[in-house]
Structures are given as structure tokens and as C-alpha cells.
């Protein structure tokens, strides 16, 4: 229940402003070129309030290159369009479906899959 979010966010690294030089000798020639480091949260999660992470428990979905222990990033806010990969419910269980032109069955779509995280360790 205790909301620690506010304390977690470390703003300084995500600052787009030019930083004042920190060098004690020659000021860095890069002063005006520094940028915030890449933050995967910004890249992979566009709508955080509608994005969910879902783990895959077996190889049932390997036709979509989704294997055991992969984590799907699913955005419920996106409209399902042709050729998109979606998470749908069929008979009370989850399926991964690619929306195709000839789809005959009416899909109960849970959300649109935007990325698949794979660990290759």
C-alpha cells in the first residue's frame, strides 16, 4: 500500500537540459552534446497505464517465435490491426493470434503484443 514511486524516480539522468561543466581543468568539448542515456521503459512502454508484462510458460506458441520464459509486453490500449500479434482468450484460456484477413472466428482480444523479451543467457 505504501507508495514509494515518488522516491524511486531519479530525475537527474533523464534531464534534457545542457549540464554545466563538471570538469575541473579543461571544460569538456562534449558539454553541449550530452544526452540522457537510453531508457528501455521509454522505448518499450508507450502507455504505461495500459501496458502489462506476461510470462510464457511453455512452447505452445512457438509458431510465433514465442518460447518458454519469454516475456510479452502487451498494450491493451492499442487497436488490433491486420498482421498484429494479439493476446486473445479462447474458451477461458489465453492464445497468441496473428490477426489475418481471413479470420473467421470472433476473437476476444485481451491486448496487442508490442514486444517480446527473450533471455538468451
Amino acid at each position: 500500500m505504501i507508495d514509494l514511486d515518488n522516491r524511486l524516480i531519479k530525475k537527474s539522468e533523464n534531464n534534457h537540459r545542457v549540464k554545466s561543466p563538471t570538469q575541473t581543468g579543461f571544460s569538456s568539448p562534449a558539454t553541449h552534446y550530452s544526452e540522457p542515456r537510453i531508457d528501455l521503459n521509454e522505448v518499450l512502454v508507450t502507455n504505461s497505464s495500459s501496458t502489462f508484462f506476461i510470462r510464457v510458460a511453455d512452447d505452445e506458441f512457438k509458431e510465433h517465435n514465442v518460447l518458454t520464459n519469454d516475456v510479452l509486453i502487451v498494450d491493451k490500449s492499442l487497436a488490433p490491426k491486420l498482421n498484429l500479434l494479439v493476446l486473445a482468450t479462447v474458451d477461458d484460456s489465453f492464445k497468441i493470434v496473428r490477426i489475418d484477413q481471413n479470420a473467421t472466428e470472433v476473437l476476444n482480444i485481451w491486448g496487442v503484443i508490442t514486444f517480446v523479451i527473450k533471455s538468451v543467457l
Binding site: F52, R55, V56, A57, D58, F61, S93, I96
Partner: peptide, 14 residues
């Protein structure tokens, strides 16, 4: 805790 714990995500398959 599906949305706040990496170890407790919703799982699909099986």
C-alpha cells in the same frame, strides 16, 4: 501481484 512483481507475472501456456 501481477503488475508489480517480476516474479509473479501473469503466465500463459499449458
Amino acid at each position: 501481484r501481477y503488475t508489480t512483481q517480476w516474479g509473479e507475472l501473469m503466465t500463459i501456456g499449458k
